[in-house]
Design a protein around this nucleic acid. Structure first.
Lengths: 222, 222
DNA sequence: CCGGCCTCTGAGGTTGCTCTGAGATTCAGT
DNA sequence: ACTGAATCTCAGAGCAACCTCAGAGGCCGG
C-alpha cells in the first residue's frame, strides 16, 4: 500500500457507479474509501482524515448539498467535489455556495474527473491541522487552543470554524457576510457572527480577534 | 468608487463579450480591467495586483492556456478562470492542468459565472493592497499603518480613504475640492477635509501630510 | 425522559466614527 | 506691524456599528 497516497472519501449510493469510481481512482494511485449514504458520509467526513471528498448530489438519507453544508458548519474544510446528474444552473450555484469547491455533471468523462481532482488537491495542499495564532496554536482536529503557559482552551464546533477561517490568513480581514455564509448558512440572525466572536474573545481574550469597523474581523496581534 | 473592491483582470478579445462581462462584473461590485489580447494579459498579469484573472481560451497573439502556463511559470499564482467555447474533455483537462483553477464553457450563465468566481475568490486569500508611505506602510485592507519599529496605528474608514488618495502619488498635490468630492460626498461642511488631515497628523505625526497653502495637501517629505 | 452543552435569536447598552461649527493660529502681502 | 484669508484645532451631537448576554430550542448521551 502506498503510504503517501491521497485519501479520498467517496459518498455514492449507486453501487455500480461507486465500484467504477473506486477502480478508476485506485488505479490512479488514490486511497479510496466508499460509503453509500449521507449519514455514513457525515460520520466519516467528521471523524476521518481525508485529502478530498467526492460526494454524489442525490443520496438516500441526506442530500449531497446538505451533507456539504453540515460538514462545513462543523468546521470541516476538506476540499469537496460534487457529482450531479442535474445540470441546471441553480443546482450548480447552490452546490458551490454550500461550500463545495467543484462539481462534475454526470455522465462525466474519466479524464475530466481526474483533472479536476488534481486541480482540487493542488490548491488545497496547505492543510495543516495546527494553525498558528501568534503565540498560541489552534489544533483543529481536537478543537483546542494550546498555549505554552496555560491550560488548553476547548472550543465548540462553530467557534473553531470561525477562528479557523480568521486565522487561516493573519493579514486578511474577513467580512461578516463571508463568515456568515461559510459558517452560519442556516442562521437567520445576522448577529450570529458577532455572538461567536464574543464567545471566542471571552475564552481567548479580547486581543485574539480585531474588529475593523465596517469591514469585518481579523486575527489580532499580527 | 469602491476602494475595497476585488480587482479582476479580464482577457477577452471579443469586444462585445468583453463589454458584457465588464458590465456584469462591475454591477456585482468588482473592479474590472479589460484587455484584449494575450500579450497585454501577460504584461498586466505579471505587473498588476489582481484578485483573480478571467481569461478567454482563444486569443490573438497567445492562447489562453499558454498565457496561464507562462504566468504560472513566472510564479504568478493568482486564481484563474478560463472561458472556453470548445467543450471537449481534452481541452478542459489541458486548461486545468496548465494551472487554471476553473473553467466555464461558453455560452455560460451569468449566475453560474458569478458563483464560480465567488468560489474562486473564497479559497484564495493572500492579496492585500499595501501602499508605501516612505518608511511606513499603509495596509488598506486592514486599515492600518505599519511601521518597522512601532505598533500599528489603526485608521477609521475616512482617514484611510484620505491617506490612500494622498499616498497614491507621493509627489502630487491634491486639492481640498478633489479630496472633498472623493471622500465627503454628502458632507456640507467644507471643513471636513481639514479635520481629517488633523486627525491623521495627530495619529501619524505632523510630517506625514504637508500643506501647500492655497493648493491643497501632499504626502509629507520622506 | 432528563440534563447538559451547543446554537442561534433578539433586545438593549455601548462604543467609535462622522461631520459640524466656532474660535485660535498662521501666513502673504502691504 | 496690520489685515484678511487660509488653515488648524478641538469639543460635541447624532447615528450607525458593534458588543453583551439572557434565554429558547435542538441535539445527544445517560
Amino acid at each position: 500500500m502506498d503510504l503517501d497516497a491521497r485519501r479520498l472519501l467517496l459518498v455514492e449510493d449507486d453501487r455500480r457507479l461507486s465500484q467504477l469510481l473506486v477502480r478508476l481512482l485506485t488505479t490512479e494511485g488514490y486511497d479510496v474509501v466508499p460509503v453509500y449514504d449521507g449519514q455514513a458520509g457525515l460520520h466519516h467526513g467528521l471523524t476521518g482524515r481525508w485529502d478530498a471528498l467526492v460526494i454524489d448530489r442525490t443520496l438516500p438519507a441526506m442530500e449531497g448539498v446538505d451533507l456539504v453544508r453540515r460538514l462545513r458548519s462543523r468546521g470541516i474544510t476538506t476540499p469537496t467535489m460534487l457529482l450531479t446528474a442535474r445540470g441546471t444552473t441553480e443546482d450548480r450555484v447552490e452546490g458551490l455556495d454550500a461550500g463545495a469547491e467543484d462539481y462534475v455533471v454526470k455522465p462525466f468523462d474519466s479524464d475530466e474527473l481526474l483533472a479536476r481532482l488534481r486541480a482540487l488537491l493542488r490548491r488545497h495542499s496547505d492543510t495543516s491541522a495546527v494553525i498558528d495564532l501568534g503565540g498560541r496554536r489552534l489544533d483543529v482536529a481536537s478543537r483546542r487552543v494550546l498555549s505554552p503557559d496555560a491550560d488548553p482552551v476547548e472550543l465548540s464546533a462553530q467557534e473553531c470554524a470561525l477562528l479557523r477561517i480568521i486565522a487561516a490568513n493573519p493579514g486578511r480581514v474577513r467580512s461578516r457576510e463571508e463568515l456568515h455564509r461559510r459558517i452560519f448558512q442556516n442562521a437567520d440572525s445576522p448577529n450570529a457572527v458577532d455572538t461567536y466572536v464574543y464567545y471566542l474573545r471571552r475564552k481567548l481574550g479580547a486581543g485574539m480577534i480585531r474588529t475593523v469597523r465596517g469591514l469585518g474581523y481579523q486575527l489580532g496581534a499580527t
